[in-house]
Design a protein around this nucleic acid. Structure first.
Lengths: 111, 111
DNA sequence: GTGAAATATATCATTAAGTGATATACGTGT
DNA sequence: ACACGTATATCACTTAATGATATATTTCAC
């Protein structure tokens, strides 16, 4: 019985995290580039090559899905339930990364 | 005049973040593997290949330095001032990533 | 005192991730 | 007609991460 061998993703890289985040709401791929640029005041940016190759990965892993196959050259994507779950998990993981660093920096008098 | 062309690192990957964090206090490379495993309850782990190749990168970027060249096969590393600064910056960046995600998840009723 | 486990560092070969450059096509305003 | 913004896509390349493996030392139980 041919199992659904979808790519498993354990941790999201920063790029994948932001892209998945932008697809919590139904959106075009393009808005990711604009939104991330804005959100981070230009600190972090995602170009088309990173964007569309990561979208392919997220699709393969069932973390996002195509919600509209527009007539012309427009597609909209949205995070799946699985995607939302992983995103929440990754928010928590980052929260812990911040906490770990604060603890260590504080105890070293660097905070 | 031969400028110090040290590798510049803009953002730290999660791996580099944890390694740099472990070197806030003077430590052997080895403790990084143990500490990260413990800290994250096995969620995130760094093997020797990732560890020592990343240490080389952090050294090249002047983010850590060798503090003791032990007689036998032991070296200790510690974060430089530059390393501490970047680490703090990256803590802040992650804090913002958490905030961004919370905002979007909340406004989508997914929180 | 010897053999097993833990400590500690290192490299090779490979896969995964990220990106600069470039291309294409549609829509809108002028 | 054409410039600009929107939108998607791919190629060739660099950077990052990792599984496997190797080596040497220290510890400590038997």
């Amino acid at each position: 019985m041919a199992r659904n061998r979808s790519l498993e993703i354990g941790e999201l890289t920063d790029t994948a995290y932001y892209i998945l985040l932008c697809f919590v709401e139904e959106n075009h791929g393009y808005v990711v580039m604009q939104t991330v640029e804005e959100m981070t005041n230009g600190q972090f940016s995602i170009g088309p090559a990173s964007l569309y190759s990561t979208i392919q990965k997220l699709l393969s892993a069932d973390l996002i899905e195509i919600t509209e196959l527009g007539e012309k050259n427009k597609k909209t994507y949205q995070a799946t339930g699985k995607g939302i779950e992983l995103l929440k998990q990754e928010v928590e993981r980052r929260r812990e990364m911040v906490q770990h660093a604060e603890d260590i920096l504080k105890s070293a008098g660097e905070w």
